[in-house]
């Protein structure tokens, strides 16, 4: 059972939940949330790459054999920063869009846009 519920399968599941949110929800806020879920899935996936029990964090004076691989963690710090920035930008754009169209629904925005 532990073999099935490892980081990889959970992250794929989370990723698919995110994709479902993007596919099926017409609310723009929920689109942004679904994107954030996908990003969390990716972060979980990276952190569990080549995971083995008994490894220690690569901080301080450790020999190579016992420490975990630090590269994915370094990459993910960058990815988290990018994710926060990108979420902020998309929410800012959403506020601007909301002021123009007064709706949170993708379809209603398209319809109002056609009328212009």
């Amino acid at each position: 059972m532990e073999k099935i519920f490892n980081g990889e399968s959970i992250s794929i599941l989370l990723f698919l939940i995110g994709v479902y949110g993007l596919l099926a929800r017409r609310n723009i806020i929920k689109t942004v949330i679904a994107l954030a879920i996908m990003q969390s899935a990716i972060i979980l996936f990276f952190l569990t790459i080549n995971y083995e029990d008994g490894r220690i964090p690569p901080i301080g004076d450790v020999t190579i054999h016992t420490a975990v691989d630090p590269v994915p963690q370094a990459l993910m710090i960058t990815a988290i920063v990018i994710g926060v920035a990108v979420t902020a930008v998309s929410l800012t754009m959403f506020i601007s869009l909301y002021h123009h169209y007064g709706t949170t629904n993708w379809l209603k925005v398209i319809n109002k846009r056609r009328e212009d």
């Binding site: 723009i28 998309s90 754009m93 869009l97 169209y101 212009d116």
Partner: peptide
């Protein structure tokens, strides 16, 4: 307003 929608979809 048009370009805001286009920019948002692009992003």
């Amino acid at each position: 307003s048009q370009s805001i929608y286009d920019g948002m979809v692009y992003l």
